[in-house]
Design a binder for these strands. Structure first.
Length: 114
DNA sequence: AAGCTGACTATGG
DNA sequence: GCCATAGCCAGCT
């Protein structure tokens, strides 16, 4: 485990930045990938602080396990998150990604990341 | 220092 | 399939 602790947020950003356009993932999937299953809430917190990260972090591609845009209220515009996702091919209705299952991207199943 | 909070999730009724 | 409950972990008050 080494330095995973201090770099937890950093690692979260690294993973989020690797989410391909047109794909989305969940907080839990990221936490699990980082070896901290159950730290899904921390991933959410990391997103909350993502503006502090020097690089662009596509936080809009991270939603909860139901494909619900739980973090939309944290974006500038109320519908900014939704618009960004729709621009990438997501079909959203009432803050929920209808084709979530089809867009889902699990970092733990991506050999390229390892 | 102790308790609350939250961009979560899994489980049971 | 929807609602309530309980773990979860780190930051914030």
């Amino acid at each position: 485990m080494m330095d995973t602790d201090d770099h937890f947020f950093f690692r979260v950003y690294e993973v989020v930045k690797k989410i391909p356009p047109g794909r989305v993932t969940s907080y839990g999937a990221i936490a699990r990938y980082l070896g901290s299953a159950g730290a899904a809430r921390m991933v959410g917190w990391a997103m909350n602080q993502s503006h502090s990260h020097p690089d662009f972090v596509p936080a809009h591609r991270v939603v909860n396990r139901n494909g619900l845009l739980t973090g939309k209220h944290h974006f500038d515009g109320v519908n900014l998150m939704q618009e960004l996702l729709e621009n990438e091919g997501a079909i959203i209705e009432e803050d929920r990604i209808l084709n979530f299952r089809e867009m889902f991207w699990d970092p733990a199943e991506e050999p390229d990341l390892w």
